[in-house]
Design a protein around this nucleic acid. Structure first.
Length: 303
DNA sequence: AACAACATCAACCGCAGATGG
DNA sequence: GCCATCTGCGGTTGATGTTGT
C-alpha cells in the first residue's frame, strides 16, 4: 500500500489515469463514439449514469440462503463512471487498499468492496497494459493454458500488465476458437461469418508461433497483482500491435523458468491438471518450470 | 434501412482458501 | 479446532458494438 500522498498530486494522478482508461471503454455520460485507438476494441458509449438502472434499491437477499457478499441496498452496480474511477484511484493512491471491504465507505463510493477491487485490478491499476494482445502474448496464453488450464490468474502473472479477466476474455473470444478451428479438418474451420477484425496475430491456424527462447537464468516475473511492475506504461494512451513493441528481454523474463527441479515428478506421471487445486502460485510455478524443462509443451495444433 | 446474429468485454456472482479471534 | 470474515479466483451474464442478410 502506498504512502499517503498530497491530495493535489493524488488527483492529478487519478485524472491522468482515468483519462488513460476512458478512451477505451465506458465513456459514461457521453453519447458519442470515439474512433478506436486500437483499431480493434469496440467502444461502449452512452451509459447515462444519472439514470443508471444498475443502482439497486431492492432489499438484499436476506432470510434465505446465502447472505450477500456485501450490503447491497443502495449500492450502485454496473459500469463505473469517470468520477467514480477518479475517486477510487485517488483514495488508493493516498491510502492504499489494505481493506477492500472498508474502502468504498472510506472513499465515499456507493460500491461494494468487491466491485472496487475488481475495477482497480482490471482497469485502474497503473501497470495495466491496454490494447491488442500481441501474437507473442496470445501464443504465450495458449501455451500456458495448455499447461495450466483455466488458471487465469496464474497465466496473468506471467503476462505483465494483463489481467486474468482480460486473458480469460481473449481466450474465450479468440484463442479458443482459433484452436478449435485449427483442430478441425480444413473446410470446417471456416467461420460462420467474417471476423469483424482480423485478430492481430501473426500466428496461423496451424498453431502458435515458435515459442520464445527461455532463459533459465531469468527469474519469473512478478505477479499480476504485484504493483511493483514497471509503471512506464502509465502515460501510454494506447497500444496497437504495431506500436507496442516488446523488448527483446521481455519474453525471456516473462516466461523464463528456472530449471531447478528434478525429473522425478515428471516420471511420476503427475500432470498439472491433476495437481491439487489448492496449489499456490509457487507450486504452479514449479509445474510450469517442470513442463517447460521437460519440453512437454506440445504444439497446440496437436491438442 | 432494418433486422438478426454474432462478437466483445466489463462487471457480477458464488465458491474456496486464507486469516484472525 | 471452530467460526466469522475477507480476499481472490473462475465462471457467467448482459449491454452494446459490429457484421451479414
Amino acid at each position: 500500500c502506498s504512502e499517503p500522498a498530497p491530495i493535489d498530486h493524488v488527483f492529478a494522478i487519478a485524472a491522468r489515469r482515468v483519462q488513460i482508461a476512458q478512451p477505451f471503454r465506458n465513456l459514461h455520460s457521453t453519447s458519442h463514439t470515439l474512433p478506436s485507438s486500437s483499431g480493434s476494441h469496440s467502444l461502449r458509449t452512452s451509459v447515462n449514469t444519472l439514470s443508471n438502472p444498475y443502482i439497486t434499491h431492492t432489499a438484499p437477499e436476506v432470510a434465505m440462503g446465502r447472505s450477500p457478499c456485501c450490503e447491497k441496498t443502495g449500492l450502485k452496480r454496473g459500469p463505473w463512471t469517470a468520477e467514480e474511477d477518479m475517486t477510487l484511484v485517488a483514495h488508493i493512491e493516498q491510502h492504499g487498499h489494505s481493506n477492500w471491504r472498508a474502502l468504498p465507505k472510506q472513499a465515499g463510493l456507493l460500491r461494494c468492496g468487491k466491485s472496487c477491487r475488481l475495477r482497480w485490478i482490471n482497469y485502474l491499476r497503473p501497470d495495466i497494459k491496454r490494447g491488442n494482445f500481441t501474437s507473442e502474448e496470445e501464443d504465450a496464453i495458449i501455451q500456458l493454458h495448455a499447461m495450466l488450464g483455466n488458471r487465469w490468474s496464474t497465466i496473468a502473472a506471467r503476462l505483465p500488465g494483463r489481467t486474468d479477466n482480460e486473458i480469460k476474455n481473449v481466450w474465450h473470444t479468440h484463442l479458443k476458437k482459433r484452436l478449435e478451428s485449427s483442430s478441425k479438418p480444413s473446410g470446417q474451420a471456416a467461420p460462420k461469418r467474417n471476423a469483424k477484425k482480423p485478430v492481430a496475430v501473426a500466428s496461423t491456424a496451424d498453431g502458435p508461433a515458435s515459442v520464445p527462447v527461455l532463459s533459465p537464468e531469468q527469474p519469473i516475473s512478478s505477479s499480476a497483482t504485484d504493483s511493483s511492475m514497471p509503471s512506464s506504461l502509465e502515460n501510454t494512451d494506447s497500444f496497437t500491435s504495431e506500436e507496442f513493441q516488446i523488448e527483446d528481454s521481455f519474453w525471456s523474463e516473462t516466461l523464463a523458468m528456472t530449471v531447478d527441479s528434478s525429473d522425478s515428478a515428471m516420471e511420476a506421471g503427475v500432470t498439472p491438471n491433476s495437481a491439487s487445486p489448492s496449489s499456490s502460485n509457487d507450486e504452479m510455478d514449479f509445474w510450469v518450470r517442470l513442463f517447460m524443462q521437460a519440453g512437454e509443451v506440445q504444439s497446440l495444433s496437436q491438442i
